[in-house]
Simulated scan of single mutants.
Amino acid sequence: MKNLLIIAAFFLFGAHTVHAADTIPVLPPEAPAVASGQPSWALQITPYMWAAGLDGNISPFRRGPTLAVEKSFSDVMDSLNFGGFLDIWARSDRFIFSGNLMYVSTSENHGTGLLPEITIPGLGSIPAGTSVDAEFDSRQFMATLQGGYRVIDTPQLTLDALAGARFWRISNDVTLTVNLGDGSVNGSYGEKFGWVDPVAGLRVFVPITEKLSLQAQGDIGGFGAGSDLTWSALATLNYVVTDHFSVSAGYKVLNVDYERSGHVFDTRLSGPVLGVTYRF
Score class of each variant (00 low, 15 high):
F95P: 01
F141Q: 08
L162M: 14
M102K: 05
G147W: 01
G181H: 13
D160V: 12
L123E: 02
S125H: 14
N179H: 15
G164F: 04
N172A: 10
L159V: 14
I96Y: 02
V104N: 14
A143F: 12
S184E: 09
A143E: 06
Q156V: 04
S125C: 01
I118L: 11
G124H: 02
L157C: 07
D133S: 12
F136C: 01
G164N: 08
D173E: 08
S105C: 03
L176H: 11
Q146A: 04
G147C: 03
G111F: 01
M142T: 15
F167P: 01
R94C: 00
L180C: 01
S98G: 08
S107A: 15
T119D: 03
T154M: 04
H110L: 09
L157E: 09
L123V: 07
R166T: 11
L123H: 06
W168V: 13
S107L: 06
I96L: 08
T175L: 00
S184N: 14
Y149C: 02
N109M: 07
T177E: 06
G148Q: 06
R166Y: 02
M102G: 12
L114I: 06
S107T: 13
S184Q: 13
G111C: 05
P116E: 15
H110V: 03
E135M: 04
G164E: 11
D160S: 10
S125A: 14
L176C: 06
G181P: 01
Y103Q: 12
